[in-house]
Computed example of a mutant assay.
Amino acid sequence: AYHHAGLSHDMRYLVEQLIDRGDVDVVAGTTTLAQGLNFPISSVIVETLTKSQGFGQEWKDLTYSEFWNIAGRAGRAMRDPLGLVAFP
């Protein structure tokens, strides 16, 4: 599944429910996935340390807190015994 700000509210809600139920094995997402959601995600792969400011806009570096907020999705407390963060 994929998760990003371009999805309608209803579609994002559906994807989030499927992730939460464990029906989705892999999620490709943007920083929207890191906005305080407590999903059962055990591993996070960070592809790049930059983010888009919108279609046709310049790219910006992730801040320290944005990176750790994304990385913090891996291995959620009380849900996973271990979390893995990879940055190729």
Score class of each variant (00 low, 15 high):
residue 1 A to Y: 04
residue 1 A to I: 08
residue 4 H to D: 10
residue 9 H to E: 13
residue 12 R to H: 07
residue 15 V to N: 00
residue 18 L to Q: 07
residue 19 I to Q: 02
residue 22 G to Y: 09
residue 24 V to W: 00
residue 24 V to G: 04
residue 24 V to R: 01
residue 25 D to S: 12
residue 26 V to E: 05
residue 26 V to S: 08
residue 28 A to D: 07
residue 29 G to M: 10
residue 30 T to L: 03
residue 31 T to G: 13
residue 33 L to R: 01
residue 34 A to I: 00
residue 36 G to C: 08
residue 37 L to H: 15
residue 37 L to R: 13
residue 41 I to R: 05
residue 42 S to L: 09
residue 44 V to R: 03
residue 45 I to G: 08
residue 45 I to R: 04
residue 47 E to P: 02
residue 48 T to H: 11
residue 49 L to Y: 07
residue 50 T to L: 03
residue 51 K to I: 06
residue 52 S to F: 02
residue 54 G to D: 05
residue 58 E to C: 09
residue 59 W to A: 12
residue 59 W to Y: 14
residue 61 D to Y: 10
residue 63 T to V: 07
residue 64 Y to F: 15
residue 67 F to C: 05
residue 68 W to Y: 12
residue 70 I to H: 00
residue 71 A to F: 03
residue 71 A to Q: 12
residue 74 A to R: 00
residue 75 G to Y: 00
residue 75 G to A: 06
residue 76 R to C: 07
residue 76 R to W: 06
residue 76 R to E: 06
residue 77 A to R: 12
residue 77 A to C: 10
residue 78 M to G: 15
residue 80 D to M: 03
residue 81 P to V: 14
residue 81 P to E: 15
residue 82 L to V: 12
residue 82 L to K: 13
residue 83 G to H: 05
residue 85 V to L: 00
residue 85 V to G: 01
residue 86 A to E: 10
residue 87 F to Q: 14
